[in-house]
Measured scan of single mutants.
Amino acid sequence: MVQRGSKVRILRPESYWFQDVGTVASVDQSGIKYPVIVRFEKVNYSGINTNNFAEDELVEVEA
């Protein structure tokens, strides 16, 4: 279970941040499909630095 402030590695192959490390900004408990919002240092092609992920697409590298 990841929690706010954890450092996580992204396992979603189609993601711009695949294999990159980001910080968990928040975790939604309402039961949505992609409840974990992760914030990154670098921006993607659209200038965005956050994205939603499912918990099984993340691996915690640092608490």
Rank of each mutant, 00 (worst) to 15 (best):
V43L: 10
G31F: 08
V38A: 00
V61S: 02
I10L: 04
P35R: 09
V24F: 00
E62I: 10
N51S: 15
L58I: 12
F40G: 03
Q3N: 08
R9T: 05
E55R: 12
L58T: 02
W17G: 01
E55C: 14
T23C: 12
P35G: 08
N51P: 01
F53S: 02
D28E: 09
V36I: 15
I37T: 15
E41G: 06
V38L: 00
I48R: 07
F18V: 03
V43W: 09
V59P: 02
E57M: 04
S46F: 14
N52E: 09
D28F: 04
S30V: 04
S46Y: 14
D28L: 13
K42D: 10
S26G: 13
E14M: 05
E57C: 07
F53G: 02
R9E: 04
A25T: 14
S30A: 08
A25N: 06
S6K: 08
K33H: 07
D28M: 11
V36R: 00
A54Y: 06
V21P: 00
K33M: 11
V43Q: 11
L11E: 06
F40M: 01
R39D: 07
V27N: 04
N44G: 05
G31T: 07
N52L: 05
D56Q: 07
I32Q: 11
G31E: 11
W17F: 03
T23P: 02
V27S: 04
V38M: 00
I48N: 11
D20W: 08
N49A: 08
A63S: 12
K42N: 11
R4S: 11
M1T: 14
N44Y: 07
I37E: 14
G5H: 02
W17N: 02
E14K: 05
Q19P: 02
G47S: 03
N44R: 01
P13E: 13
Y16G: 04
R9A: 04
V24E: 01
V2E: 01
E14W: 11
W17D: 03
T50Y: 14
P13R: 12
I10W: 01
I32F: 04
R9L: 09
G22H: 02
K33I: 08
E14D: 14
F40D: 03
I32G: 14
I32A: 12
R4A: 14
A54H: 07
E41D: 13
S6D: 09
E62R: 11
P35L: 10
Y45P: 15
N49I: 06
R12D: 09
R9S: 04
V61W: 06
V43F: 15
F40E: 03
D20N: 07
E41N: 08
I37V: 14
T23L: 08
P35K: 09
N44T: 06
G22R: 01
V59R: 08
V21L: 10
S15W: 05
K33V: 08
R4T: 13
G47E: 06
G22E: 02
E41P: 06
R12W: 07
V24K: 00
T23A: 03
F53L: 01
K7D: 04
V8R: 00
S46D: 15
I10R: 03
R9F: 00
A25P: 00
W17I: 03
V2F: 15
V38H: 00
K33A: 12
K42I: 07
V2R: 04
S26I: 07
G22F: 06
V59S: 09
V27W: 04
M1R: 15
G5T: 03
E41L: 07
L11S: 04
A25R: 05
F18T: 02
G31W: 07
E57I: 01
S46L: 15
D56K: 06
I37H: 11
R39L: 11
G22D: 04
V21A: 02
S26H: 14
Q3T: 12
Q3C: 12
F18E: 04
L58S: 01
N52H: 10
I32M: 10
Y45K: 15
S26Q: 10
Q29R: 14
M1G: 14
W17M: 00
R12T: 07
S26V: 07
E41R: 05
V61H: 03
A25W: 08
V21G: 01
Y45W: 13
N51I: 07
V2Y: 14
V61P: 04
D28S: 10
F18G: 02
I32Y: 04
F40A: 02
D56L: 06
L58M: 06
D56M: 06
V2L: 14
D56N: 12
D20H: 11
V43N: 12
A54S: 10
I32D: 10
Y45D: 15
D56I: 08
E55K: 09
G47V: 01
V36C: 05
R9V: 08
V27T: 07
Q19E: 10
D56T: 09
S6G: 05
D20F: 09
G31A: 11
S26L: 10
S26E: 14
R9G: 05
V21R: 00
G22Q: 06
D20R: 05
N51E: 15
Q29K: 13
V2S: 04
E62L: 10
N44I: 04
V36L: 04
G5C: 09
I10P: 03
R9P: 03
N44C: 11
D56S: 11
V43D: 11
E57S: 03
R9N: 04
N51F: 10
V8T: 02
V59A: 11
I48K: 11
V36G: 00
V21T: 08
K42T: 14
I48W: 06
R12S: 08
